[in-house]
Design a protein around this nucleic acid. Structure first.
Lengths: 338, 338
DNA sequence: CATTAGCACTCCCCTGTGGCGAGTGCTAAT
DNA sequence: ATTAGCACTCGCCACAGGGGAGTGCTAATG
């Protein structure tokens, strides 16, 4: 692929990203100073199409980048401008709030990203069930209910109201919690559930029903909902390729459910840095017309969560990547002190 | 309005609810045993249109009920069949779970209702800020964070993590909480916020910053999000009148934001029972093509929340009303023991 | 020999036309 | 009062034709 083909592919991709219209040779020659005539561009485009970088919606339409074309553009062609100062300020300001709750960070980040980019965004909260169980604690609320507080070795906590047998005294509850903590501290939270359901494994079995009730939840680390936040899903309606009600249904349906997002997350390992998945690269049929940009964030040293942007394939890749880079970075910094 | 007009309006409305197609005189005569000819029906329909119960999308189309037509249908014409046993069982089964958390009820109810009816549903959680403050309590989590638990006289609790000055001992915290509780118990939660911000009102002012941080939240009763749950918003896409992308945007946008729902809730007082708002009766422009069915639920004796269904104007009113009646009833029963 | 002008060709899109069908309102007959 | 009959209206759809954007090919050009 020589320099001329590269610049044609780049110009075409950028034009299409802005216009959403198939780009023809004449347009390309007129708008971009390539120094060659439409006829030459046509020849080059024919090559690029043959090689799979471009596609034609139909004969006598302009060309459109294919997944492979976008991929090449993202990997090799596009410029990565530095982030603007205004934007940087805005992002930093978001994290300077006094509120230091994990859930708040997740919500704010999702909203911030979808606001800034104009695409739907998803933020996955720290994967609680991967944490290491440290201790358990009860706080009595009423005569037959208590707050169950679970804590990880990282210092994260989560709590929930459980109903308890009213004959248990506060002291007894505390004993139970201590015994449980002693027994299971150091274990991955994900595994808690399996252990507790084996009645032989613990001397706690006299209150088996209580534990069973409480730990179905503990093992999951709270409801599914709290682990994922979607912001701005309707942004997708602003892009003409989603004028089709069926496409809208697929994409919004995807954003609504929790599980598919995990599929995407699994496509790439939890490597640090910003990752791009284009069209079918996500291998999720519902969003085959979308691209996804993903970044991870850290808490201390460990990678604990993800920020994602879902948009049309003709996404503003460079911009989104830069935004996610900065956001995930600032978020990681903010979480360090949380 | 004589009996014949009534039966014509009823048949037409029911046919249109099922078919979404404007209904003509011939169809009406053929499908329903009205005992009169199309010509007579036409005359009657002309009257009904003149009186504002029917509308014609265009000359030479069939007729469609107007808001006024639906209103008359709902108030006077429609049959209210009893709920089926299967359905009743399903609803009851939902509330027989062991999980007794308020938030869980709200989520489950929203999902249940949208599943059963096939329309989007909204459930408003108990209006926390209307409750009466009873007591406050701290549970230390780490060296500079604590869990703040607030309790109402009804026995509802809510909690949140707050950061606290690390020099405060546990004993000091407890003293603070007790002092605060003594000072403010019996006050409506909604009013807490205003009082605490007046530095003269309390001897607690030495930890003013802490209280300020904590109580901005207490006064609101948690994030907005937790107070409202939407389930099945995409159900709206199944109805042909929402094939238009702009209508979809309006309705989904409405469901996404919190505030507009309150507008609707305010349209009708918190009276018990099931209420129907048709088309522009909601006076929310974004959902002028929708109808809303609303029911309230109780906790003990007091009405504390709402279950709502949002659907196209040609909604299955009778069915939805029956479902909401039963659901809100069962929910109220379940909450009595929560 | 790479580049480019020229040209025939393709195919989408828009518009206008005409037939069909559903439904109406009116009138006259029952 | 009801109804059959009929002319009329209008949306829908299929179809054809013109325009336009863009292409691939070929032959001319520097």
């Amino acid at each position: 692929m020589d320099a001329r083909k590269r610049s044609i592919l780049q110009a075409l991709t950028e034009d299409y990203i802005l216009s959403a219209e198939p780009v023809g040779s004449r347009t390309l020659a007129r708008k971009y100073n390539l120094g060659i005539s439409p006829a030459t561009i046509r020849n080059e485009m024919a090559d690029l199409e043959e090689w799979g970088f471009l596609e034609q919606p139909h004969t006598s339409a302009g060309r459109v980048p294919s997944d492979k074309g976008y991929r090449f553009y993202v990997d090799e062609l596009m410029a990565r401008p530095a982030i603007g100062n205004d934007l940087l300020e805005r992002i930093r300001a978001t994290y300077q709030s006094r509120i230091r709750e994990l859930e708040w960070f997740v919500h704010q980040t999702a909203r911030l990203v979808s606001d800034i980019t104009g695409y739907p965004s998803i933020v996955l909260a720290p994967a609680w069930e991967l944490g290491i169980f440290s201790a358990l604690r009860f706080v009595r609320l009423g005569k037959d209910s208590a707050l169950l507080i679970m804590r990880t070795e990282d210092g994260l906590t989560q709590n929930r109201t459980v109903s308890i047998p009213s004959e248990l005294s506060l002291a007894q509850l505390n004993d139970l919690a201590q015994e449980f903590s002693r027994e299971f501290s150091g274990m991955a939270i994900r595994d808690l559930q399996n252990y507790i359901l084996d009645p032989l494994s613990t001397s706690l079995r006299q209150h088996w029903a209580l534990w069973q009730r409480a730990l179905g939840w503990l093992g999951h680390g709270g409801g599914e909902d709290e682990r994922m936040t979607v912001a701005g899903p309707l942004n997708i309606l602003n892009y003409p390729e989603f004028n089709d009600i069926d496409k809208v249904r697929r994409v919004l349906g995807f954003l609504e459910q929790d599980k598919a997002v995990e599929q995407i997350a699994k496509t790439r390992p939890m490597a640090q840095g910003v990752t791009v998945l284009i069209g079918t690269e996500t291998s999720v049929a519902d969003i085959k017309d979308c691209s996804v940009v993903t970044a991870t964030y850290r808490m201390g040293e460990a990678v604990v969560g993800r920020v994602m942007v879902v948009g049309p394939r003709r996404m503003q890749y460079a911009y989104v990547m830069t935004v996610l880079e900065v956001v995930s970075d600032e978020l990681s910094k903010a979480l360090k002190w949380a």
